[in-house]
Design a protein around this nucleic acid. Structure first.
Lengths: 204, 204
DNA sequence: TGAAACATTGCAGATTATGAAAAATCCCCC
DNA sequence: GGGGGATTTTTCATAATCTGCAATGTTTCA
């Protein structure tokens, strides 16, 4: 019936799934922003989207995961961005470029991200999850870094350290960006953080 | 009845509390090491110590917290160690000394820590918690760092970044230490990680 | 169109977590 | 030593999270 069935090549089923997922994320974020993490139950979120709470759990394993969202820095996405950087570029610089690419992605969805970060600030128990949204992501990046540096993972600790530091830099940039109400471009804040890392974190 | 009532100056009540807490931690660690995180319920842990599961929750807000333990790097402890370093020492170096002090503390309880780290490796969902065992700790260190650096927190991002990087260095050292079966002294691994940070994380 | 594939739902049940009040234990002081 | 007050532990009740399973619709594709 529709003239243009879809911009994507997805079928109706998959489109509906994406829609439901996005609606659940959105509902979770707005409700928790209003009432706080403890003031919102999974049932509330499911009801706001008009699905059963069982369906909620088909999409997310927990309330927290709905807040973090899936559009999140996935392992594959980050690794891909990292591997797109020419191999002769030093690791830290490569991580900076990866972070900048992610930053653009974040800025494309300003509103949602600002809401998310606000929720995270107001509910600190969620923060550790943001760090790398699960260890899986960090491990994937660590592996890519190890390959790039030509080091066996788990021997020198270098890949683990530089990855952790790089992700921390990205996180700090995000928090500053949020705190400043997105008045400064995220990319610039990312650059600053990485510059401090590269300089060996001297006293300011 | 007892000739020497106690080596500590604690009363029987407080001694029992400490004992119960330690027993719960120990039981949680050993059980989870055997059966995995999902294979152990709070009731199992409580039963192993012969207390009611309600009592478990009087000591720990969640199963995970029992694994992390309370003897953990507390906010106060870390801040104290950090403030013990003369103020003219640069921030990163001060964090290194703090980490070394903690390292000694960890090595005093090798067995328990190795078991803990093994559990954390086998149950990665716990890892983010180890980073700073809650954001509270990290924030406390960040504040101390900000004071030391003479910077307003939340403006430059420097305290946040150097704290995150320093704690990451400590964490990486711990993981390497554990992976090597504690054959290398933790303090040396801490030094290595901080040296890499101070050098700006150059490719190895 | 018809059958296979998949999404959603309701329900039962295990587990986690918290509050309130009763029961047991400990501590301090007489 | 022994009792009164404080504290801890337990019991009981209850809410919320989360997981299988089977039934019921949709969507897809041949």
């Amino acid at each position: 019936m529709t003239i243009v069935d879809s911009a994507d090549e997805l079928g109706r089923r998959d489109r509906k799934k994406l829609e439901t997922r996005a609606a659940l994320e959105r509902a979770a974020l707005t409700l928790v922003a209003e009432r706080g993490l403890a003031g919102v139950t999974v049932e509330d979120i499911a009801e706001a989207v008009d699905v059963s709470s069982r369906t909620f759990f088909n999409y997310f394993p927990s309330k927290e995961d709905a807040l973090i969202g899936r559009n999140q820095f996935t392992a594959a996405e980050l690794r891909e961005k990292l591997e797109a950087v020419p191999p002769e570029v030093p690791v830290l610089e490569a991580l900076r470029r990866m972070a900048r690419a992610e930053a653009e992605h974040v800025q494309e969805q300003q509103e949602q991200w600002l809401l998310r970060l606000k929720v995270f600030e107001q509910n600190p128990s969620l923060l550790p999850r943001l760090v790398a949204s699960g260890t899986e992501t960090e491990r994937a990046v660590t592996e890519a870094v190890a390959r790039r540096a030509g080091v066996e993972p788990g021997t020198t600790g270098y890949p683990e350290l530089v990855t952790a530091a790089g992700l921390a830099a990205f996180r700090v940039a995000m928090m500053r960006w949020s705190a400043a109400g997105a008045r400064r471009p995220l990319a610039g804040l990312v650059d600053e953080a990485f510059a401090q890392l590269a300089a060996g974190l001297p006293n300011p």
